[in-house]
Computed example of a mutant assay.
Amino acid sequence: MTADGLIDVHAHFVTDSYVAAARSAGLEHPDGMPGWPTWSVEQHLGMMERSGIEKSYLSVSSPGVHFGDGSAARALAREVNVFAARVRTEHPRRFGHFASLPLPDVEGSLAEAAHALDVLGADGVALETNHHGLYLGSPEFEPLWEDLDRRGTVVFVHPTSPPHADDLSLGRPRPMLEFLFDTTRTASDLLFRGVLARHPRIRWILTHGGGALPLLADRMEMFRTLLGGGPVDAPSAVEQLSRLWYDMAGTPFPRQIPALDAAFGVERLLYGSDYCWTPAEAVLAQVEAVGSATQPSATDTWRDLTTRNARHLFAADAR
C-alpha cells in the first residue's frame, strides 16, 4: 500500500447477528433494497488492496440499530461497536470505526457514545439522517449535541429512508433518490434550528456530496433571510454548510463534485466507497472515475486532496 492511499470515511460492515436482528424486526428488504450484503474482514481488505484504499472507517449503515425496541437497540449498538472495535484493534493501520448510537433514545445514546469513545476508542459516531422521523435538529437531541461538541467529535451522518418512504419512493430503492434528499433535509434542519451555530466543534460528515445541498444552499439562504431561521447573527447558509465535511461516495464525476466545489469548495472533501452496500466491482469503477477526472489543481489529484483532507479531519488540532 502506498503512502498516498485513499482514506475511506464511508465504509460499512454487517455481522450475522446484526442482520438476524434486523430480519427478526421485519427488515428483509432494508430501504427497498433487494436484500442484505455479505461482509468479512478478509473481503474488505481484498477490496481495499484492489482499490488502493489505505484505511477504511467502518460504520453500520441504514437502517441503524434501533428497530423499535429501546433496550434491544442499546444491546445491539453495544454488540456492533465491540465487534468493530475488535476489528480496529486487530488491524489498526487499515480500519477505524464510527460507533452506532441507539437514537432516538438520547439517554442510551449518551451512554453508548461515552463507552464507545472513552473505552473502545472509536474515531467518532455514526447517525442516521432521521431516527424514527426525528431529524437531527430536533430539540430532543440537544443533550447529545452538547456532549459531542464538548468532545469535538467526528459525527458521520448516513442517510436513511424518510417518513412515509413507501409513498415517496414510487416503488424504487430509497438509496437512489430519497437518501440524497434526506441528507439535504437533515442538514437544513441542523442549520435552521441553529445546531450548527451552537455546536461548532462537532465535525459533521455528510455523504454523497451533500445530496442536493450544493444546488439548494442559495435558496435556503434566501428563505433564511426573508423568514428567519437559526440565530440572527449566524453566518449565511452557504458559510455554515461550507464548514461541514462531505464524502464523494456514489457517482462523484462528472457532475456532482464540480457542483459541490462551486458551492462550498473542496477543502473538506473526503473519499467514500460505500462498500459493502456498494459491490467491490462498482467501488473499483468509481475509483477509476475519480482517477480519470480532471484534477482539482495543477499539483493535486483527487486522491491527494481527499487523503490530505482526511488526515486533517482526524488530526488532534482539528478539534
Rank of each mutant, 00 (worst) to 15 (best):
L58Y: 01
L117H: 11
V290N: 12
V82T: 15
N309D: 01
F179E: 05
H131M: 09
L206W: 09
D233Q: 12
A263C: 13
V87N: 04
L206P: 11
Q43A: 14
W145V: 08
E142L: 15
Y271E: 11
V41W: 07
R311G: 07
V266Q: 07
P37K: 06
I202R: 00
Q240I: 00
A310S: 12
H10V: 01
D8N: 06
T294F: 00
S273F: 03
T184V: 04
D261Q: 15
R94A: 12
R243L: 04
S100E: 00
T2C: 02
F264E: 02
L244M: 14
L196N: 09
R219T: 07
T2M: 03
H29T: 15
V290C: 10
S61Y: 01
V287T: 14
D233P: 11
R74M: 00
V19P: 05
C276T: 15
V106D: 08
E128G: 10
A21G: 09
E221Y: 06
T153Q: 14
Q256T: 14
E107K: 10
T2W: 03
F253K: 12
G209A: 12
T294D: 13
R174G: 01
W36V: 03
A212R: 00
A249T: 01
V125Y: 12
T299L: 11
W39Y: 13
V283A: 10
S109V: 09
H29N: 14
A217T: 13
Y18F: 15
V19L: 08
I257G: 04
F13I: 01
E128D: 02
A25T: 05
H66K: 03
G64Y: 11
P254E: 06
A85H: 09
F223P: 02
A289F: 02
A114L: 04
T301P: 08
T15W: 02
G194T: 07
P279W: 08
W302L: 14
E90P: 02
P254N: 08
A122T: 12
P252K: 11
G121R: 14
A217D: 01
G265Q: 11
Y275D: 04
V82F: 00
R23M: 15
H29P: 04
L168T: 09
